[in-house]
Amino acid sequence: MINTFSANSLKVINGSYEEFKNKYIDNLEIMPYSEELKKGNLLHGLICYYLKGYNTEKFESSLDKDDYILWLDIKNSDIIKLIKSGNEKYIEYPFFIKESLNNKPYFLTGRFDAVINTGHNYVIADWKTKNLPKDPKDDIQTVVYMHSLSRLFNTKNIEMVYYSLESKKYAKTSYQGGYLDKINQIVSNVI
């Protein structure tokens, strides 16, 4: 019985239960892997090392020209500077939250790209390779992440920042509430 959900799996359930069943329950998916995916992983990885404080010069020198320019822009972005300079930060931080629906427990899982406690609020950063969510306020990822962070740190003072690595644009939203109900609604299709 599936009782653990990520933001992605909830998105799929919301779209089509059959697709969810194929992919997550029956494992009938053929693993995709595109150049874009590869690039996304690479940038995520580099950001992670950088924010964790490793010396990234050697990696940078192996990037191809386009990626290198992209990387410089990323390093210079406000969000990266913010996190880099912070004291209390969590990079590639996994979470595992327990909830229940009709007395049946279920779990939310995922990983924050980066979280920083600025002192006056928590900021969740999420790196997107290309496209930002159209509607960050109601995006399922926002719902799940906001809710999870609020549980983990017992606060509602959260801002979520999506950053597109390619277009260098931002999409931001603040804590709204009502997230658990939305999650429960999707989960009820499965449990």
């Binding site: 931080y93 996994p94 595992f96 939250i97 327990k98 909830e99 427990p105 779990f107 549980r151 983990l152």
Partner: peptide, 13 residues
Amino acid sequence: VKNNLKINCLTKF
């Protein structure tokens, strides 16, 4: 562990 978890949140296993 999941089935007997009393606390509500953790980071990774």
